[in-house]
Nucleic acid binder design. Structure first.
Lengths: 191, 191
DNA sequence: CGGACCATGTAAGCGGTTACATGATTCT
DNA sequence: AGAATCATGTAACCGCTTACATGGTCCG
């Protein structure tokens, strides 16, 4: 149910075609709310049908393009969601589930699970750090558009919250890596 | 797809009736893989149909009870899962999604989101700490049954991995709380 | 001319959520 | 007698995954 809010969040940075949405989604808000194209396009249509977004057709050198933007009611829905209580997903964590029963795994396989865990979060860590660097040096196109025509205070707010979100992810990655590394030691100790 | 492995994990501690499974699930493996009764009972039937678990009917003072236990093929499936690569869920994190766009929220609502986040993880922290305490003082019935008839080395392994899993969750809770608290400061600073 | 990128999806299926439903037994 | 716990689900729905599909355009 948050997909539409993720899409609205993206569209508050400016009008975009469906394709731009799908690409920019991956490189920005998709880091906190993943969605494949096969979900994005149908959801956009539903949102259009419900009047949350609108497409404006603009003539282009060849063909024409449809630029989506949030409607007033879309912005209102987004703000209402921002002010509503959060709905958390229930805990479902395959890595910790498995770790709790490592006595049933081959020690080598248990080690592999933890090494995969470390790899995964190191990869994510790099991606998230890149996002933070882009926020800091202004090289994110979505954010740059979002900051256009804003005063210094608003810019600080907008960038500050993006940075804050990614810092949280980074801290999580560090915690996961540290945990998995402790686990490697534990396996050696116990097997 | 991990539900069945969570159920098998639970059943490796000893035979149980459906009802015992559903209760004990909540208080043990359910902490890392949540599932409601409405999912557990049908899944058990499917697993029975596929020969992963078997129920033994035992006469009781009044009526009779069906005690489920994993079959050899169930244990093999569980071990195979333990040794297979993990499948991670894609990132979908409503709290971080929202935090990244706090400039669209009323500052009071943003604060409330973060305070809810802190509450949630403090509650979870308490639950997880209780689990760790129960592991340490032997007061977890599921774990106690699991340790029956095992030698000291095996006991250390079984308890050690359970503890390790919960420690990871605890560290995560701490990180989430610290993050949200930083966020409260940030909101004050920026608004 | 061929490969990367632009552009936009459909369809089947499943895992999970939510709401609802029922009746027996044990405890106070 | 009434509440809590035992005991076991069904049904509708939906968000999401996976696999597949198609054709245009730009660049080297």
């Amino acid at each position: 149910m948050s997909l539409r809010y993720a899409l609205l969040a993206l569209l508050t940075s400016g009008p975009m075609t469906g394709y731009e949405i799908s690409r920019r989604f991956q490189s920005s808000v998709g880091h906190v709310w993943h969605a494949p194209d096969s979900q994005i396009y149908p959801e956009l249509r539903k949102m259009e049908a419900e009047g949350l977004v609108e497409a404006e057709t603009v003539a282009e050198p060849r063909g024409e393009k449809r630029f989506y933007h949030p409607t007033d009611s879309g912005l209102a829905a987004f703000r209402a969601w921002m002010d509503s209580p959060l709905r958390y997903a229930l805990d479902r964590d395959p890595a910790h589930l498995r770790a709790a029963y490592f006595e049933w795994a081959d020690p080598a396989a248990a080690r592999r699970s933890l090494l995969d865990h470390i790899d995964r979060f190191e990869d994510l860590r790099v991606q998230w750090q890149e996002q933070i660097d882009q926020i800091d040096d202004g090289s994110s196109p979505v954010l740059a558009r979002r900051l256009e025509g804003k005063d210094a205070d608003e810019r600080r707010r907008v960038s500050g919250y993006k940075r804050f979100a990614y810092e949280g992810l980074l801290a999580r990655a560090d915690a996961e890596i540290a945990w998995a590394q402790r686990g490697l030691g534990l396996i050696d100790e116990l097997s």
